[in-house]
Amino acid sequence: MSHKLQITRFGEVEHWTLNDPATRNALTDEVVAALAQACARAAQDTALRFVVLQGSGGFFCAGGSLGSFAQAIGQALPTGQTDPLMAMNAGFGHALHALCALPQMLLVAVDGPAMGGGLGLVCCGDFVLATPAAVFATPEVTLGVVPAQIAPFVHRRLGDRLARQMMLSGEKISAQQALDQGLVDELTDDLPAAVARRISALRGAAPGAVTHTKALLCMINQAPALDLPAQAAIKFAANLRSPEAAEGLAAFAQKRKPGWAA
């Protein structure tokens, strides 16, 4: 297991902590793989009842890391080649689906920024708790990038109108706004205590019934969209290779407005 995803166990509860404060807990390939591995293990663990996903260092998750994609930004794919970006991007989509499919209750505890892919993680939670310092956004379109893999999860959590507003504007929303919109279920100044209280209250739900209920919900949510990771990866890869993405990401790095916003 990656040291960038720390897992601690307390009886029937595991805490999965994104632990790379230097990158604001960005979703590198290593972290995504570790999340997928943790989900696969937890899916077979009948003694585990609750998973708490959280960040460290005052951040939840800054979103996807473009490190492995850097050489492809703004570059056309050579004719006849299968785009490697598609498999890498789809891997994150499969990790999100695995989080939603966990047989355990998934509590997401948010302190600090939850951006892009980080918001996707939030939207996988059965229950989302946050501090007033939490802030949420899907800034991809302002960078010339598509919020490809997170789109179905944001849409599922917020509904069509609010999901469109978030993903098409890229604007940040505060913790209070997130509570008002239903993205967050509870605001608290003491996140660990609030998580403990919530778990205590949820212990009245029978583990087997929870597992089957979550499986049924997963079937309902995924039935019409089983190929979404692949379709989203196609759009992500095509867009990342475009001049638009090159301009948007360069503008962000240079702290200036991209050409289309000037």
Rank of each mutant, 00 (worst) to 15 (best):
Met1Tyr: 10
Ser2Met: 11
Ser2Thr: 13
His3Asn: 14
His3Ile: 14
Lys4Ala: 10
Gln6Lys: 11
Arg9Gly: 08
Arg9Ser: 12
Phe10Asp: 15
Phe10Lys: 15
Phe10Glu: 15
Gly11His: 10
Gly11Thr: 11
His15Glu: 14
Asn25Arg: 11
Ala26Met: 07
Thr28Leu: 04
Thr28Cys: 02
Thr28Arg: 08
Asp29Gly: 01
Leu35Met: 13
Ala36Ile: 06
Gln37Tyr: 02
Ala38Phe: 01
Ala40Phe: 07
Ala40Gly: 09
Arg41His: 07
Ala47Tyr: 04
Val52Phe: 00
Gly58Phe: 08
Ser65Ile: 06
Phe69Thr: 09
Gln71Ala: 14
Ala72Gln: 14
Ile73Val: 14
Ile73Thr: 07
Gln75Met: 10
Pro78Lys: 04
Pro84Arg: 02
Met86Gly: 05
Met86Leu: 09
Met88Leu: 13
Met88Ala: 11
Asn89Met: 11
Asn89Gly: 06
Asn89Cys: 08
Ala90Val: 01
Phe92Arg: 09
Leu99Met: 06
Leu99Ala: 08
Cys100Ala: 13
Cys100Pro: 06
Ala101Tyr: 06
Leu107Cys: 08
Val108Gly: 02
Val110Phe: 05
Gly112Lys: 02
Ala114Lys: 00
Met115His: 12
Met115Val: 14
Gly118Asn: 04
Gly118Phe: 10
Cys123Gln: 04
Val128Gln: 00
Leu129His: 03
Thr131Asp: 03
Ala133Leu: 12
Ala133Met: 09
Ala133Ile: 04
Ala133Val: 04
Ala134Lys: 01
Val135Met: 13
Phe136Gln: 04
Thr138Ser: 15
Thr138Ala: 15
Glu140Asn: 15
Glu140Leu: 14
Val145Thr: 08
Val145Gly: 03
Gln149Cys: 07
Leu158Asp: 00
Gly159Asn: 08
Arg161Trp: 03
Leu168Ala: 13
Lys172Tyr: 05
Ser174Met: 06
Ser174Thr: 15
Ala175Cys: 01
Asp180Ile: 13
Asp180Cys: 10
Gly182Phe: 10
Asp185Val: 12
Asp185Tyr: 03
Leu187Pro: 02
Asp190Trp: 07
Leu191Ala: 04
Leu191Arg: 00
Ala194Asp: 09
Ile199Lys: 01
Leu202Glu: 08
Arg203Lys: 12
Ala206Gly: 08
His212Glu: 13
Thr213Asp: 10
Leu217Ser: 08
Met219Val: 12
Ile220Tyr: 15
Ile220Ala: 15
Asn221Ile: 00
Gln222Arg: 15
Gln222Cys: 14
Gln222His: 14
Pro224Ala: 04
Asp227Gln: 09
Pro229Thr: 09
Gln231Tyr: 01
Ala232Trp: 00
Ile234Glu: 14
Lys235Met: 11
Ala238Gln: 09
Ala238Leu: 05
Glu244Arg: 15
Glu247Lys: 06
Ala250Glu: 00
Ala250Thr: 09
Gln254Asp: 07
Lys255Glu: 03
Arg256Val: 09
Lys257Ser: 11
Pro258Asp: 03
Ala261Asp: 12
Ala261Leu: 15
